[in-house]
Amino acid sequence: MADILMQDELFEVEDTQKGKYLTFNIGTEFYGIEIKYVTEIIGIQVITEVPELPEYIRGIINLRGKIIPVMDVRLRFKKTFREYNDRTCIIVVDIKDISVGLIVDSVSEVLNIPERDIVEPPQMNRGFNNRYIKKIGKVGNDVKLLLNCEKLLTEDEIVDINEAL
């Protein structure tokens, strides 16, 4: 018994970030993003618009001398635009050496979602824009949609640009 506990502890020390998700919401839906991608969370900033880009890329911001693009996740998911307010947050993520700010309605908390509570997303409803959803996490009675960050940055860019033009 004691041994098993020890092992569990060891495992946690080894990988403290594993199973942790930063949750945020867009409208009524809750999303989760693996904590290892997140570098910081900031309030909404002055955004400099950059022309000729897809609508969901709102422009660039100055993050202490570093210039990073910001993406409105709401628009990325083809939802309607909502004016930014003091609840609006920018989650700065670092994915494969690319820094991007994700604009979300609000950030809620960091949750530990164990493997056993994570399931595959349903495949049937094609209308639902779930290509950016990797898994679904169950927390109590709530459901968190776990984002596939890499897809968020790469998937269907070409298509989107063509739509934007």
């Binding site: 950059v50 880009l53 897809p54 890329i57 660039i60 210039i67 990073i68 693009p69 050496d97 690319i98 820094s99 991007v100 940055l153 860019e157 640009i161």
Partner: peptide, 8 residues
């Protein structure tokens, strides 16, 4: 410009 934008 950020790499992400240049890539797009």
């Amino acid at each position: 410009l950020p790499t992400y934008i240049k890539r797009i």
